[in-house]
Design a protein around this nucleic acid. Sequence first.
DNA 1: TTCCAGGACGACA
DNA 2: TGTCGTCATGGA
Length: 296
Amino acid sequence: MAFPTISLRPPYDFSRSIRFWRRSTGELCEQWADGVYRRIVTLDDRLATLSLTNAGTIEAPAVAAAIDGRAPTDAELAQVDPLVRRLLGDDLDLGAFYAVADPPMAGLARRLYGLRPTRSPLWETLCWTICGQQISVAFAYILKRRLVERYGLRSTAGGRPLFQFPLPATLAAIDPDELLAMQFSRNKASFIVGLAGAIDHGELDLDRVPALPTDSAVAYLTGFRGIGRWTAEFLLLRALGRADALPANDAGVRQGIAALYGQRLAEPELRAFAERWGAWRGVAALYLLASLRRDE
DNA sequence: TTCCAGGACGACA
DNA sequence: TGTCGTCATGGA
């Protein structure tokens, strides 16, 4: 069956970009198997499974899109096109980043040529980031998986389970003690249930975040309990692809700089160091994180 | 055993 | 305003 293709901004390495955030095979809200990326999306207020496969090259990138395993209708395609572009970060001009990279970063960019990490929904990413506060990534994946399995909406795609991340209203209604039993810390349980409630009550409006400049978005988000500066910056980088959002307190970013530049920097020094990348400091942070992975 | 992971918060000076 | 203790778990 032929699926419509969506042309993307070059350079773009689909496979490398999809793999970037996937550091666990236990991820339930997205799938990457047999060259197909799948995620539950909302079209016309109904849930559907979006499938993407590579249909181009790094210099002429394109993806083929399917909805629920079939070709999307014209009306669906009109919604899928911008959704896919947001998901794959098509607005990010890697060529412009590569042009401002200093020699070590330029070397890293050559190694990771075409990497433009996939984005994920704000609420899901916010919860994931809170799961990841302070603990190892591996354990954070375990926490997220438990949350999704218990409270998410299960479906099946490609013969495997695929979940919609639990809605704020669902998590707002639970007793935080339920999360303690799943090995969430008291703080994490309180943060997630509290933020879910803030969204459910209209106090926290994640929909307004994309329209805010990065500094304003950080200020807005850190006004809520459980969201510190690292969480806000990491969220903006991962969920919205904000090129200038630098999670300077990130252990991985610090490691990446130590490995690439031989300097172990604390947060204030790291922010000053990152000024060399200007408005691309967030993308540089992503490349630093990628540089630490054995499979890259 | 100790330290460190993709930190945040509250108490305290 | 800046520092410190605490929270939680697992791997090195």
